[in-house]
């Protein structure tokens, strides 16, 4: 589990590894799992930090 006070802990929904999330993370932000390299989306911050697999890039995504 992370010991850095600037991070918080969550669980990777893909491989069940512990994932360190920045303390200032926002809902909708994308983070990577260091163990399985899955792209994860911060689904909610409260009451518990929850991660989900990030959606695949869609055809109309961009700038």
């Amino acid at each position: 589990m992370p010991t850095d006070p600037t991070t918080q802990a969550a669980t990777c929904p893909e491989c069940d590894a512990d994932v360190s999330i920045p303390e200032d993370a926002m809902q909708g932000e994308i983070v990577a799992c260091d163990d399985c390299a899955a792209e994860l989306e911060v689904l909610q911050l409260e009451p518990a930090l929850t991660l989900g697999l990030a959606p695949e890039i869609q055809e109309d995504w961009g700038e």
Partner: peptide, 14 residues
């Protein structure tokens, strides 16, 4: 309004 947050949206929100 946002969907997936990019660095840009985080900067704008800040």
């Amino acid at each position: 309004v946002t969907s997936r947050l990019r660095v840009e949206e985080k900067l704008l929100l800040a």
